[in-house]
Write a protein that binds this DNA or RNA. Structure first.
Length: 645
RNA sequence: GCCGACGUAGCUCAGUGGUAGAGCAACUGAUUCGUAAUCAGUAGGUCGUCAGUUCAAUCCUGACCGUCGGCACCA
């Protein structure tokens, strides 16, 4: 006699066990049509699930977020059936739903190409139109293994073998086709709908391990309806326009070429942007009690051996030899060992701690070729790096201070939101477990004090200590680690850093490795995408163009430019022989925030006609007043309070 | 590094087994014009590199380099 409680609190009695389908039908024909999946005591189950006892039930319709995930999951099943129908001999492996869609990994000797998509999509539409129910079936573990082995699906058999003993093995059939799946599923293939599209093919290692076979992955996207699909595809096009590689080229910010793979050639405008960011960081660090240093690029192998990098990191290091000397040097992949060398000069006192040592350190790392990505992932980059030498008792306080500094910095650059990951001990690590316990504990405690919400990122810590990763998202939705804070008990030990304590004895300091932007290259790449090249005035590499209407006004245009330049603005003059329409268009497309238009009238009256990017209004302003106003607007955010703005 | 796709003028792209085209940009000339494209002309390419097939290769084949999308990696 199940009593079914519905989301509105009402209770319905049934005199025998009922399926979700029957409950929905009992409530009304509209719900019976719309209900795709049932939430049984908070757990998603098939509509065909029988409810024997009292339960609370909610029905998921197409509009619910859960439904979208299931549409995607089921689309993966539909695609798998289509692929196996079209390409006999292909084995299925796994096919989950993901953000915006789904994928399925297939084992096939010949990889798929995008040219196969139309065929597969057509077959998928057939399967959807066929509208066969997804039927759940529980099978004995050994029977399931032999079932899949008999079908030649050795990957599925392997998956079942590794499933926890306690787990029920469920199979889902859709017509003739059957797949191992935990479920739940929509009612039938028709519920998937036709708002899907296959997007790309890719290789992917079986079980994510590069020692395993490479499978052939097909990515697809799926939505509730065509409108949502179209909106998504449109969003992707928009995102492509924001791509920092595209904008970097269009705006002439930087380039990369074959002779220096993974290194950036910064052009004047890009370098101006870089310097603006660097100057900002330098002011921030000075105001936060950091001292800045500069350490060598090329350092003898001996130091890297002492620090542990030679052992753990050598294949990622650029090694340099000199002909006349029997020495091996390496381009530094990190700044930390060098900073310890500065710390070790002379005898340090506890009174000097915390010692915050910053460097805009240029590092080189031999990154795998497949990892390179524009200026976001490069082999030569500059970190806004610093190492805080402190006592264990100071970790929490320094972490809190750091998080505050990082938040203020991100906010000033226009990133209101960022995510934090806590990466704990990796498999390959230096230091014993007791030390790791202490380091992780201290960092967690500090996070609690700083009020930082984080997600655990298991096993992803640095080899010398746990870390916090501050993650920003690019235009295409990819996450990038920018800021980081790492607790390190190991390196001070290895490199023998010590200070004299209050007690007169020698002690080991703790090192906090920390960066806010991470690498300038990566951060600027994300910044470019964030603003799609339309930077706020203080960051814009060219802040103003003075455009003359007639050549008679060119001298005045130069005068205007000189006046603004003297006040600190980056200004160009466009005195070319073009119509003002063309000039406005050109500089607007180049994302110049301010266009000062000057003709005979402005020259006579000592004014400018100001036009701002993104608007078509014109403001006629006396030159002197415009300078005062715009210089104030162009003040970097950290200086605004001081400037009274 | 692995799987796949791609590489033609500064940029975006078209094209063909008989050594290449468009638009924009550039340059020259004319035009002096009031807020998102003035007109005309000129110039510009070892078709990523190296081999092979062929009477003939930018096109077909292979290797390499690079880029792009994933996977793996990211101290």
């Amino acid at each position: 006699m199940p009593a079914i409680t519905l989301p509105d609190g009402s209770v319905r009695m049934f005199d025998a066990p009922v399926t979700g389908t029957e409950i929905a039908a009992a409530i009304g024909p509209g719900l019976a049509r719309a209900a795709l999946v049932m939430k049984l005591d908070g757990r998603l189950v098939d509509m065909a699930t029988t409810v024997a006892g009292d339960a609370s039930i909610a029905f998921v319709t197409r509009r619910d977020e859960d439904a979208l995930e299931m549409i995607r999951h089921d689309a993966a099943h539909v695609m798998a059936e289509a692929v196996q129908a079209l390409f006999p001999g292909t084995q299925v492996t796994i096919g989950p739903s993901i953000e915006h869609g789904f994928y399925y990994d297939f084992a096939r000797n010949e990889p798929f190409t995008p040219e196969d998509f139309p065929k597969i999509e057509a077959k998928m539409r057939e399967i959807v139109a066929r509208n066969t129910p997804f039927l759940r079936q529980v099978m004995d573990r050994d029977a399931a293994i032999s079932f899949f082995q008999a079908k030649g699906e050795k990957y599925k058999a392997e998956l079942i073998q590794d499933l926890p003993r306690a787990d029920e093995i469920s199979l889902y059939t859709q017509g003739e086709w059957v797949d191992l799946c935990r479920g739940p599923h929509l009612r039938s293939t028709g519920d998937v709908g036709t708002a899907f599209k296959l997007m790309k093919v890719a290789g992917a290692y079986w079980r994510g391990d590069h020692r395993n076979t490479m499978l052939s992955r097909i990515y697809g996207t799926a939505w509730r309806d065509q409108k949502a699909l179209d909106a998504y595809l449109h969003m992707l096009e928009e995102a492509e326009r924001r791509d920092h590689r595209r904008i970097g080229k269009d705006m002439g910010l930087f380039h990369i070429q074959e002779e220096a793979v993974g290194s950036v050639f910064w052009h004047p405008k890009g370098w101006k942007l870089y310097r603006t960011a660097e100057a900002y960081m330098r002011r921030r660090l000075e105001a936060s009690g950091y001292v800045e240093v500069k350490t060598p690029q090329l350092v003898d192998r001996a130091l890297w051996e002492a620090s542990g990098h030679w052992e753990k990191f050598r294949e990622h290091m650029f090694i340099a030899q000199v002909e006349d000397e029997d020495k091996t040097l390496a381009l530094k992949p990190m700044n930390c060992p060098c900073h310890v060398q500065i710390f070790r000069q002379g005898l340090r006192s506890y009174r000097e701690l915390p010692l915050r040592m910053a460097e805009f350190g240029a590092c080189h790392r031999y990154e795998p070729s497949g990892a390179l990505h524009g200026i976001m992932r490069v082999r030569a980059f500059t970190q806004d790096d610093a190492h805080i030498f402190c006592t264990e008792a100071q970790i929490a306080d320094e972490t809190v201070k750091f998080v505050e500094l990082l938040s203020a910095t991100y906010r000033d650059f226009g990133f209101a939101e960022f995510r934090v990951k806590f990466s704990d001990r990796p498999a390959m690590r230096a230091g014993d477990d007791v030390t790791w316990d202490r380091a992780e504990g201290a960092l967690k405690e500090a996070c609690a004090t700083a009020g930082v919400d984080y997600v655990i990122n298991p096993g992803e810590g640095a080899f010398y200590g746990p870390k916090l990763e501050f993650v920003l998202r690019d235009a295409i939705g990819r996450d990038w680690q920018c800021g980081t804070l790492q607790v390190d008990f190991v390196l001070p030990e290895r490199l023998d850093a010590e200070y004299v304590g209050e007690d007169g004895a020698r002690h080991r300091p703790v090192m906090l490795h920390r960066a806010i932007l991470g690498s300038f290259e990566r951060f600027l790449g994300i910044l470019i995408e964030q603003y799609a090249g339309r930077f706020p005035l203080w960051l814009a590499p060219v802040q103003m163009v003075v455009a003359s209407i007639v050549s008679d006004a060119n001298d005045y245009a130069e005068h205007v430019a000189r006046t603004f330049r003297a006040a600190g603005l980056e200004v160009r003059v466009d005195g070319t022989n073009q119509k003002i329409n063309a000039k406005v268009r050109e500089h607007s497309l180049a994302h110049v925030p301010l266009i000062a238009v000057v003709g005979r009238k402005e020259a006579e009256q000592n004014t400018i006609a100001l036009r701002r990017l993104g608007g078509d209004a014109q403001e006629l302003l006396p030159l002197a007043a415009a300078v005062t106003m715009l210089i104030r607007e162009a003040t970097p955010p950290d200086l605004r309070a001081a400037a009274g703005g």
